[in-house]
């Protein structure tokens, strides 16, 4: 996250930290963010996993404010299922249908348990988003500047505003790279944004009075660059896909 502030996971208790396992016993490497949408399911971005789409290669933590270190109250999960969108594809700049689902379970077969640092996030009503111009929260362990070599160890969050499709499709923004299954969000002064390493993490907007997973960090040109908003998978347009894979509607936080 460029700009914004450091935070505790209690302020974003649906945030999931997804790590890729390493060979030879070295500790896993942070890969991407995600969001807990039901006790057994985390939503993230397909582009995080497309090069290594094997569930055995990943481990998921909930309740982490600090990356790669022990956090009191954290829970660790293996990935029981890894589902990437079947129509995921990459353009020169854009990712399309950039959504993935991870079914999680502990080594003893449990799903997530609620606590001060672990909570589900609501899903939006079908085809419903917050109005353009609304403030939404982004969260992640991603870079604080695109040119940084190191990633921050502590969780960060910030606030960006939803940008209309009309605006985001302007030639000096992203032109035809944008479609209606994506959401653009940016800071009017271009001082804060999601960045490399924040992929898969949540864009949380208030819809009908509830914090709601409106977007999933997907792509963008640079970070906090003028006229180049962050682009997010538009969750409200993937509810049928989510439901078809998770199955039971009652387990979902609509």
């Amino acid at each position: 996250i460029v700009g914004g502030e450091f935070t505790e996971v209690e302020n974003q208790p649906w945030f999931a930290a997804i790590y890729q396992k390493n060979k030879g016993g070295s500790p896993p490497s942070f890969k991407c963010g995600g969001s807990l949408i039901s006790p057994c399911w985390v939503a993230s971005a397909a582009h995080c996993f497309i090069q290594l789409p094997k569930k055995e290669n990943y481990v998921v933590y909930l309740g982490q404010s600090k990356e790669s270190s022990y956090n009191p109250g954290e829970m660790k999960f293996e990935v029981e299922q890894l589902i990437l969108h079947e129509y995921y594809r990459e353009d020169s700049l854009a990712y399309h249908n950039d959504i993935a689902l991870l079914k999680i379970r502990t080594s003893t077969g449990q799903c997530a348990q609620p606590s001060r640092s672990i909570q589900t996030i609501c899903l939006p009503p079908r085809f419903t988003d917050a109005p353009f111009g609304s403030d939404c929260e982004i969260t992640g362990f991603g870079k604080e500047s695109e040119s940084d070599y190191l990633y921050p160890k502590n969780l960060k969050m910030s606030v960006v505003k939803l940008v209309s499709h009309e605006q985001c499709m302007q030639p000096h923004y992203y032109g035809s790279e944008i479609n209606y299954k994506m959401l653009c969000a940016a800071d009017p002064e271009w001082k804060t944004d999601s960045c490399k390493g924040d992929s898969g993490g949540p864009l949380i907007c208030n819809i009908e009075g509830r914090p709601t997973l409106s977007g999933i960090v997907s792509w963008g040109r640079g970070c906090a660059e003028k006229n180049k908003p962050g682009v997010y998978t538009r969750v409200s347009h993937f509810l049928d896909w989510i439901q078809s894979h998770i199955g039971e509607e009652k387990g979902l936080a609509f």
Partner: peptide, 22 residues
């Protein structure tokens, strides 16, 4: 404003233990 109800596992979507920023 509507609020989510507590599910069978004790989750209440979108509810923070800390005060929301909205």
């Amino acid at each position: 404003k509507p609020s989510s109800s507590v599910d069978q596992q004790g989750f209440q979507c979108g509810q923070k233990a800390l005060r929301p920023r909205f």
